[in-house]
Design a protein around this nucleic acid. Sequence first.
DNA 1: CGACTTTGACCCGCGC
DNA 2: GCGCGGGTCAAAGTCG
Length: 588
Amino acid sequence: MVRGCGLSMDSDPIGSFFLHKPIVLNSFPEDTNHPKWKLSPHNNMDTIPFQVNLSCSPNNHHSPPPPLHNTTEMDFFSDNTNNINDNVSASASNHHHSTTPPTLEFKLNTGLNLLTTNTSSDQSMVDDEISPNSEDRRAENKLAVLQSELERMKRENQKLRDALHQVNVNYDALQMHFMNLMQQKGEEVEEQEVIGGKSEEKKQGESGGVLVPRQFMDLGLATNADTEEPSCSTGGRSQDRSGSPNAEVASKELGTSMNENVNDEGRDKEKKEYGRGVESEDSPSAHAFAGDKVPRFSPQKNNVEQAEATMRKARVSVRARSEAPMITDGCQWRKYGQKMAKGNPCPRAYYRCTMAAGCPVRKQVQRCAEDRTVLNTTYEGNHNHPLPPAAMAMAQTTSSAARMLLSGSMSSADSIMNANLLTRALLPCSSSIATISASAPFPTVTLDLTQSPNPLQFPRHPNQLQIPLQGIPQNFSNSPASLMPQIFGQALYNQSKFSGLQMPHDADPSQFGNHPQQVPPHLTDTVSAAIAADPNFTAALAAAITSIIGGAQQHNNSNNTDNNGNMTVSNSTGNGNITTSNNTNGKQ
DNA sequence: CGACTTTGACCCGCGC
DNA sequence: GCGCGGGTCAAAGTCG
């Protein structure tokens, strides 16, 4: 889900991401109790649109929402609000008797002008006790106070920018969430139209299914997604199918028999690559079941399974500079092998995700032969468990982009179309390019986060189209941007979910009957067209990708925000490139 | 003692 | 059929 800001993203996803706390550029003590500082329990659009929950300080991204009226939720107010009266009195007295250094003034809320205006009594007292240079000293004090105030305001401004950035992130995440919900809604309607009462038995199983935490499953479901329904916290739907043990058992049983119709090569290959130890999660039988209950249209069915198999082979590759042996991506990994790969003196390490039993996600880590500082991490598979919250904002926000990008994995025409979509999505804020390759053995998304001033430095396929991203942090090793693989891993799942894009348009609609994740082609085409036609969406998408990565970077890097609230990363010397290589010629 | 890493062996696909 | 390379397994070792 979306990090920080205490935003209630699950409720009122569209209207309420605006700010819970107002941005006020001064911090007079009286403001701390001003109604405009009170958190709005609901997103009241009547409130000033610039309300920001400033609990989203760079160091507080993962903190729970602060309680209402909590004066400490803005750290830069804490100094002023907690002991404001003490500070005022103490400072006032200090300044009557000495030339207090400006450092003490940082804790003084000078909005009261305590040091610059004297009452008649004060003036008389000062005049009685200090030297004739008191006027000069007062002027100096005033100057110091103003300077300190200026500094404080600068800090406040920076924090407000950060908060605004976070709000933008939340907005983008919500927008993506909304898009996903809309797509799923359409999918659901379409499914009902297609299968009619065919799923009655299944629905009974769903109703009695076990509620499985699927808060993040919409993007993170593994290949058992064919029997489980991913959703974006859509409540009932999220538990539909997903937690249904009946459906899962049925899928295994039927899949076993159905699998007999699958070509041996594909089956064996899948079992080899995904079946070991995780048969229940990722068995080809489950996918076989997903297609239909009755074997028919065998060639089309093979196409479906081939598409799904290809999607399961889809990979996400990340190039990043890191001195660490492995980038931190928020997941737990266990090394299960290491090999010397040909053409690279550096060994390739093999890891599998251990965050959940049977998670099929694996990754390979290998240093670049040309540049040992570059770590090449390749992810494969999709998580079958909720991802860390920090990863979910990016996951939800970028999933659609990756989905569009990847949805052309089977069709060169679709590849071009989706590349264009993503390009359109990113170009509004970037001068970058996208890449699509037809020569990779399987669909691969490559995210190049190395500090290459020249995006063409690294070898690419000649038929690649490049989409550099704006604001991708270049120092990847400790950056939450390293969570990007999860995004694309999730997106790969979504891609498989939308593998209907690759299905023949004349395919038997009943094939979708028991494969709720698959959307009939015309629906996804419609959705894609709608997305592509919406400049707001594309702009938001581009901003989301940029700002989320940059926002995550806040933990480790100093970020800057321009006057428009756009995040820039301090080390943005290079370009973050997304390279996708879609196999259009690979074996099917 | 459990989790994790290391590392040699094994399996499989592919090209010749 | 054979060799090569990629990927995985699993026993042994290591670590906290």
